[in-house]
Design a protein around this nucleic acid. Structure first.
Lengths: 194, 194
DNA sequence: CCTATCTTTGACAAGGGTATCAAACTTGAT
DNA sequence: ATCAAGTTTGATACCCTTGTCAAAGATAGG
């Protein structure tokens, strides 16, 4: 290797993910990315080609992160606990942490961009994986109880509902509201008073 | 009146609503608005001041339209029918008609803009009205059945869930999927097999 | 130490959008 | 018919963003 990249590539992706989550794709400029990562615009163009390429990399990283988080959250012995885990993970994803805020998936779903189809396909892939993971995790737990709702239907409902949580958070910015909604749906899905 | 406006103001608002719903606020330019309404940019600036002012007017019009639609949809004798009416109205709003597509509320919630606070307040107002309307309409119907969930909680859950439907529609563009999700939640809220 | 190759740097051109403005125009009221 | 007030029109200035590029810099391999 003769020409060696001088900057921290993981930092670029990390900062990009943060900015895209907070401001969206069109709301983030190459200048923003450059400033946040401490790399000059020219270097970013040279290394990645442009904003869309950086976004794709950031989104792939985000997909891995989200799926890992849900996989862990669902690993519980009862239906109720698994659902609680899923909702808690979703709300944590949406409300963010010190490093990042906002749900990139929901954000990208509502935004228009040049590479619409590619990004839409990425979102479909992420939500599809999430739905499959939910269905597989809930299947045995649903069968154990007296649940009338099939696990795949429940999985879809959870995916759709949690997208709604992301929207509501943008408007009310109220964690208690999100937890209240999640508890309400949990109550419908697990009527028992354990 | 000496200087009389030469163009059709209702057409401007109607076309603006269509464009903002389909492309978002930042995705719609004054040029787009001018072209769609057949009015020159200069005239729009003179009449309204700028894009944001036009948006506010369009959003107010949208708020009235949505609330009217839900008021009619909820006017049913049983809980199940009222819920079905609400979900159908929501899906119709989201999927649109020949004239317009896309859910402006959900779209605006996820987009960043200069007048963030003003628009966020507008969204909170619309969803608040919707929630109140739902709670009041469902209250007597819930009391009639053996429902354990209080009407206000159910109202919030519906508002949140239907925002999720709007997001899912953007990704899958599949009306059957939306109806499936709505039926699933309906099944949880009205367990009886009428 | 030298070199080939890639990276960094800063400047620049181009495109698109917002906003402004003066001049021409329209029209209700006197 | 004339006037005053508001509107239309097209041009223009300005800003922001993207994308490109040549020159300078850095580094592994010889």
């Amino acid at each position: 290797m003769v020409g060696v990249r001088q900057f921290d590539e993981t930092r670029v992706i990390r900062e990009a993910l943060r900015l895209f989550s907070e401001r969206g794709l069109s709301g983030t400029t190459m200048g923003d990315l450059a400033q946040a990562s401490g790399v000059l615009r020219g270097s970013l163009y040279n290394a990645y080609g442009g904003k869309d390429e950086i976004f794709i990399l950031a989104f792939e990283s985000y997909t891995r992160e989200v799926l890992t988080r849900f996989r862990e959250a669902l690993d519980r012995p009862t239906l109720r606990e698994a659902l609680q885990g899923a909702f808690t993970a979703a709300i944590r994803s949406i409300r963010g942490n010190a490093e990042r805020r906002g749900c990139l998936t929901t954000r990208m779903a509502l935004e228009d961009h040049a590479h619409q189809e590619r990004i839409r396909a990425g979102l479909e892939h992420l939500l599809g994986e999430l739905e499959t993971m939910l269905a597989q995790a809930l299947e045995p737990l649903c069968a154990a109880g007296d649940n009338r709702m099939p696990a795949p239907v429940m999985a879809r409902l959870i995916v759709t509902f949690t997208r709604g949580l992301a929207v509501i958070d943008r408007i009310y910015d109220d964690g208690a509201r999100l937890r209240g909604d999640a508890d309400a749906l949990l109550g419908l899905m697990c009527p028992q008073e354990a």
